[in-house]
């Protein structure tokens, strides 16, 4: 039963896997660049989840071809597309800022390794 349910929700499963992989990468890898990559993977997982919620079988992208609903055309959920767009921009901003700190840290300390940074600090 469980497996069948999960199979029907494969998209969700994949997105959650991505989320967890990203989270695990962020938490376990000592390399700062890898942490940032993990962060991006995590966020990608969430975006996949969001667009999966919005998708329905047999729908079109939400650019209205004809006026009115009676044409029988159905579209994906536009709200989620908008949310994902906003989310992506926020993710990009965070990444850019994180990378700039990393560059600066590398210049000052010559390492990208969290453990070595901890040691340098104390």
């Amino acid at each position: 039963m469980l497996s069948l349910d999960l199979f029907l929700r494969l998209n969700y499963l994949a997105s959650i896997m991505l989320f967890l992989i990203g989270l695990h990468t962020m938490l376990t890898h000592a390399n700062l660049i890898k942490k940032v990559m993990g962060m991006n993977i995590m966020e990608t997982g969430i975006f996949l989840f969001l667009v999966s919620i919005g998708y329905a079988h047999g729908t079109l992208s939400p650019i209205i071809r004809q006026s009115g609903p009676e044409q029988g055309l159905i579209y994906t959920n536009p709200l989620l597309a908008a949310i994902v767009l906003t989310g992506i921009v926020i993710a990009v901003s965070t990444t850019a800022y994180a990378l700039s700190i990393i560059i600066k840290l590398y210049e000052q300390c010559g390492t990208l390794d969290v453990d070595r940074l901890e040691k340098l600090r104390s």
């Binding site: 962060m39 966020e43 926020i90 965070t94």
Partner: peptide, 16 residues
């Protein structure tokens, strides 16, 4: 810088 990065990454986890 290190504190800011730590905060940034954790707050990205929080945002997630």
């Amino acid at each position: 810088l290190e504190a800011a990065l730590k905060y940034l990454l954790l707050s990205a986890v929080a945002a997630g």
